[in-house]
Design a binder for these strands. Structure first.
Lengths: 414, 414
DNA sequence: CTTTTTTAATAACGATAGCGGATTAAATGC
DNA sequence: GCATTTAATCCGCTATCGTTATTAAAAAAG
């Protein structure tokens, strides 16, 4: 446990103020007082220090309140240029990158069509390096200006060490992606599960802004799970994030266990159709929903049954998540949801029949379909989160040591 | 989020000191300094305040070090009489109670043979009240001296509100057990899932003393799950604790889903035998292992197959827990483990074949068989934990308001 | 155009926390 | 009996926060 001293106290309140400014846009000091319940003096001192460090700046251009009687408020906002980070989302058919500033605003993004399946680590690292360089340059920056980088990809990832224990996109086991990227780009790199990245995006920018506690299930060519608990991502030993696709749906009998991924991955659904290749192509272009609906209407029984099977498996899996974690909310995201309503309808129906009566009504299930850019932005947000430097331990032990530098104009004294 | 001020600082360090004394037995101030990394001055001040409040006391009877050179150490220990609490474990065939002092030492315990199955709330509340009164009197105390009470039982429990949403032992849904006990005994009452109680016992007194992160699966007539995360029990919405028995093991087809409880509950295993009633009786007396082994050796095929089925189901369930939460350790506890090795062997084998290769070796599985008294003590420990008053939020929102009074001799000034 | 009013932000002051170094306390060793 | 050693406390310092007064900068009133 950490012992409390004045320094920690300051760190907590400082983070609290910074986070409040991030969440609630430009704020006057008085407003920060109200939201944080700190005294005006303390807020004054802390904001002075933040200004001094170049993390925030005052927007002199006016008090927007109309009918303003007293001294006008000076609005404070994050100083966008305080740092720049890159978020990368790697998926099977696409690498999406986003360069953001300190506020998480996207300066440039880039989607690279690829076709990845169990590539050697070096291939992946090369593609990411290439993408980062392009995107950074597109944003009008140089690599030297990038403070840190976060790569999100499906699979079992150790956030703490930067290793990818297993991923459908990487050939090897235990690939040290973090070190590979540091070597190539010279930029501190975090590696995270893609579900965690999109959960962070939803929490900072999206639908889950008001929710400190929720679970998120990501449905793409891999199936992921993120658990946000009191505003922090839940991580296991070594910072491990779960890979929901590995969930065993029916006991190992003979040929081994049937996993959720085999039933509900996007490819598994599409493979049910006789015309799988064509559908795969459409799905990649975001026209999956229409195509799938059309096929089913035309009587593609294989597709219909695989969609139903996927929906049922997901319904059970989500019921089990609710049984085990009782999150007040479940978010479903990912491109598989664009395949049409069959999956989702079956999912809901199965969930309702599978959930125990005692847990009925505990978790509200909502669906959201963020674009790939949001995922990349989420990865960037994870990198930023580290920069904001919350003083309490990020969930999960054994962190990889990453320098926590922020480039400010006066990054001097203290 | 809580804002940090000197008061919080003190509360944190105070709890830290108190918890250190609780964990590591009588300690001299110097030793507290080493363990907490607080300065000698601070420890002196905090211990003075704790002494003043009657929460700890100095053991003047000597410095046990031999070859002691300088001024002898004054050992500090929890003052046992600072508070008394009662822990209750309710299970199908037994209500076990323990009265403990402020250190968690058991002053008296009591096991009442019962036979509960879906009783009305009042029956249960009556039995608990009766047991509490007996046990308290056996400890030489009066109800008025009891600071608080914690009832642990299987099922879906809202720790935050004191409601039992569902339990195999209670007839109704959403039974307000906490209020019922307060009304009967006039003692603040916490209600908790039994798995959480035994997890707290293992964390404070037992095998999990060194582990801040682990998951525990309790195997009795109900199957429970507790997740300890950074020394805190993980709780969901409203403080909900999971009921692992509700886990769906195979999709809802026709007659509804097959749940883990149907496959792996103690009764389910025993019911496989032709001679179930006799076995049930033996299991109740702790002679299950021998009897079951004997029956299987004699060729009770039904029993063997139900044991294997249970082991397999549990192996899959535990693999799924590891997949979702990646705990560094899994503890198995509960009387079902006394039914012989068939279940456990099958469990391990199935786990190994069900766990995804990427997660292999993440979680170490260990088995422990605490007696009913340990569970009751764990419930008491949960009540004590609240008294120790950690300043940071107990996991999970929406607490039931319970007065946090401690009876000290000088419970005055501050 | 000056004065009053109103609100925002800061300054001055006091309280409390923790820490480091000097001091006292209480034992052993010579 | 006195030096030595170790434990615990006392004193002085700094950093934090909060409360109360003060200054700053605008609109409204006269």
């Amino acid at each position: 446990m950490k012992t409390a001293d004045p320094e920690l106290m300051r760190a907590i309140n400082r983070f609290h103020v910074l986070d409040t400014i991030r969440r609630y846009g430009p704020l006057a000091r008085v407003e920060i007082c109200e939201r944080t319940e700190l005294s005006a003096t303390t807020v004054s001192a802390i904001t002075a220090s933040l200004l001094d460090d170049g993390l925030i700046e005052s927007q002199n251009l006016g008090d927007v309140r109309n009918g303003a009687r007293g001294r006008p408020r000076v609005m404070l906002a994050l100083r966008a240029q305080a740092a720049f980070v890159v978020g990368v989302k790697v998926s099977r058919y696409r690498i999406h990158l986003a360069v953001t500033d300190f506020q998480g605003d996207v300066l440039a993004d880039l989607g690279l069509p690829v076709r990845l399946s169990r590539e050697p680590l070096n291939v992946l690292a090369y593609l990411i390096e290439d993408g980062v360089r392009s995107c950074v340059s597109k944003a009008g920056l140089t690599i030297g200006q990038i403070t840190s980088l976060c790569v999100a990809l499906p699979g079992v990832v150790e956030y703490g060490t930067g290793r990818v224990r297993a991923s459908p996109l990487i050939d090897e086991l235990d690939a040290q992606l973090s070190d590979a990227m540091v070597e190539r780009l010279g930029v501190p790199t975090y590696v995270e599960n893609d579900a965690n990245a999109v959960a962070q995006a939803e929490y900072w920018f999206g639908d889950a802004r008001e929710f400190e506690d929720f679970a998120l299930v990501s449905l793409e060519n891999a199936i992921g799970l993120a658990v946000m608990h009191e505003g922090q991502l839940f991580r296991g030993a070594l910072g491990l994030s779960p890979n929901l696709g590995d969930l065993v749906m029916s006991g190992p009998n003979g040929a081994g266990p049937t996993r959720l991924s085999e039933l509900a991955e996007q490819d598994a659904i599409i493979s049910g159709s006789a015309d799988a290749d064509c559908l795969r192509e459409s799905a990649r272009n975001g026209k999956g929903a229409a195509k799938v609906a059309e096929r089913i209407a035309r009587g593609d029984g294989g597709l219909l049954s695989s969609a139903n099977e996927a929906g049922a498996a997901l319904g059970v899996a989500i019921a089990n998540i609710v049984t085990m974690l009782a999150p007040p909310r479940i978010l479903l995201v990912g491109s598989t949801l664009a395949l049409g309503n069959e999956v989702l309808e079956k999912l809901h129906a199965t969930f309702e029949s599978a959930i125990s009566p005692a847990m009925r009504g505990v978790a509200e299930i909502t669906v959201h379909m963020p674009g790939d850019d949001v995922w990349a932005r989420g990865a960037a947000a994870l990198a930023l989160r580290e920069l904001y430097g919350a003083p309490w331990s990020t969930t999960g032990p054994a962190r990889h040591s990453i320098r926590n530098g922020i480039q400010g104009e006066t990054d001097g004294k203290h």
